[in-house]
Amino acid sequence: MSTDSHSNSAKSDLTPIVRLSAVNKHYGQLHVLQNINLEVTKGEVVVVLGPSGSGKSTLCRTINRLETIDSGTIEIDGKMLPEEGKMLAKLRADVGMVFQSFNLFAHKTILENVTLGPIKAKGMKKSEADKLALTLLERVGVANQKDKLPAQLSGGQQQRVAIARALAMRPKVMLFDEPTSALDPEMINEVLDTMVGLAKEGMTMIVVTHEMGFARKAADRVIFMADGLIVEESTPDQFFTNPQSARAKDFLGKLITN
């Protein structure tokens, strides 16, 4: 139940890809992130669980500075997250992000959505970017939709394109902010399958989700947050079968387990 005993990751011999130390953030009176310490090593899949309003989405969004923090430090691959400007943009290019509401560029085709980042942020040639994008779209199973606009695709397809768009930047780590929460039930699995595939290939991932099945199947580590604190941190097995904190027991007890 204490807040600052989580940095003893099993793989601490490797340089962490993401390191948060003593991160604090307030929304007015609400202390939404309280002294957060977190290290994620290369290839690790960390699933962040917790009730609504626990600060898990905010945590995810601070890692590429879509949310600013009040105090503490965030490092990506050993580099401090810059405050603004070109350096920040450059670092963000190394951090893939998948949003709850997909956020595909509404006026651009599926293919353009995926190639925009590599061409404009990384200076890749168009022909090269097209090739890369098609490979990625193939991999997430929507290559046949490449000339359509996002609004013409189903939610599940849009989210898979969003994953391809993030992958096209060849990120060091991927952040997933409740990627299936806006999807119809029958589309959740197609997105989760894509994510499980990524995890198996060794992508470093931080996943905020309510999908316990995904946590069980793909997570190396589960982090349980409540009221702005990291309350518990353990392996998925340990967490689901033998949660330590009362808060986690209460949370798991309210779920219809699958």
Partner: peptide, 26 residues
């Protein structure tokens, strides 16, 4: 929607490219 700007920033575009390619056309 705000998410359009966030997605643009998340793939590494700074303010002017994001405004020119994503925000202003829409």
């Amino acid at each position: 929607p705000l998410g359009q700007a966030e997605a643009a920033r998340a793939i590494g575009l700074s303010f002017l490219p994001a405004a020119r390619m994503i925000i202003l056309p829409q």
